[in-house]
Amino acid sequence: MLTKVFCMRLNTYGVVIGWLGIIFSFLATILLSVALGFVDEIAQQIVAGSKSADVTLDQVRSVLVISLSVYLALKVINLLSSAMLLVGTVKERHLLLLPWLINNGVILAFGIVVHLGLWAQVFSSPTPFLDALPIILFSMAILAFGWYLYYGIYSLFKQIQVTSDIQRPLIAPASQQTNSYPSYTKI
């Protein structure tokens, strides 16, 4: 498990990632909402710039509405999971970090599939390997960076989980147990 990420303590790192996720997701939500509002104009520009005669305005508009709506939903989910990451880090509640871990785990899995497809395309192209090497190295660096960031939050999750189990055990030690009624039955 990591103890620091980019020379920051894990709690500081969790707060920074939470705030960055909130800010960028909020800005992307605004941008995608504006794009959905101007979808007709965007579709007209795409059709006008298209060299293919098979592309119709309705097809482009439908694809734009569907893709922008899905991406908007994903950004709202990312906004909520980043807010939960921030609150979970500040209040030291490890279960509030789970939505961010699940969300970004899915994004990383999707990224692996995309990168494998990119590598397959690069290897199958007729270009020499040395020309494709920078693309492959850049792709591997992005994937490694994503895993490092994810592993930092996972380490924070495990650290908070361990400290919360020590602070609040599920069963009190035998020396603290009494033969009285539970406190919720006393009036």
Rank of each mutant, 00 (worst) to 15 (best):
M1N: 06
C7S: 15
R9I: 03
R9C: 14
L10E: 02
L10T: 03
N11G: 07
N11W: 07
N11L: 06
T12P: 05
Y13H: 11
V15G: 04
V15D: 12
V15N: 07
G18K: 01
I22F: 06
I22P: 04
I23Y: 12
F24R: 07
F26Q: 01
L27P: 08
L27H: 10
A28H: 02
T29S: 14
L31M: 11
L31R: 07
V34T: 09
A35G: 02
F38M: 10
V39K: 13
I42E: 05
Q45G: 07
Q45P: 00
I46P: 00
S50W: 03
S50D: 03
K51M: 06
A53C: 05
T56W: 10
L57H: 10
Q59Y: 02
Q59D: 06
V60G: 00
R61G: 00
S62K: 03
V63R: 03
V65E: 07
V70K: 00
L72C: 03
L74E: 00
L74S: 03
V76P: 04
V76S: 09
N78H: 04
L79V: 03
L80F: 08
S81C: 13
A83Q: 07
L85V: 04
L86A: 05
V87A: 14
T89C: 13
R93E: 09
L98S: 06
L98E: 06
I102Y: 05
G105A: 06
A109S: 02
V114D: 08
V114S: 06
H115F: 12
G117P: 03
A120K: 10
S124K: 09
S124C: 05
S124P: 01
S125G: 10
F129C: 01
L130W: 14
D131Q: 10
I136P: 01
I136W: 08
M140W: 08
I142C: 08
L143D: 10
F145W: 11
W147R: 07
L149V: 09
Y151A: 12
Y151V: 08
G152F: 05
Y154Q: 10
S155V: 08
S155T: 07
F157R: 02
D165V: 02
R168D: 15
P169E: 08
P169I: 09
S175R: 11
S175F: 13
Q176L: 15
Q177W: 10
T178E: 14
N179I: 07
N179T: 11
T185E: 13
T185I: 14
I187W: 14
